[in-house]
Amino acid sequence: MKVRVTVKYLSALRDRAGTANEVFVMPAGSVLRDLTARIEKERGISLPDPYVMIVLNGKGIRQHSRRLDTGLSDGDTLLLLPPVSGG
């Protein structure tokens, strides 16, 4: 059983990744940390990075937190983008 996760690179992260979005097929039981490791290897975006924000299924993830151990599910969406600030 594999899980398919859509990764979207927004704004300047698209420039760094060289693509707008892609699908990663991960082994069953994979966690978010496994996916970010693949992104680092294949796209050269290493984490933690204070100038990168990650959002899994609509929720922001602190890059030093245990939430990087969150299990991935088929159909998940991960956003990578620069930190947001308003006004």
Partner: peptide, 13 residues
């Protein structure tokens, strides 16, 4: 502007 805090900080749902 709450979006940064509500999303990025990880402190809020």
């Amino acid at each position: 502007w709450t979006i940064r805090a509500e999303l990025q900080s990880g402190d809020y749902d």
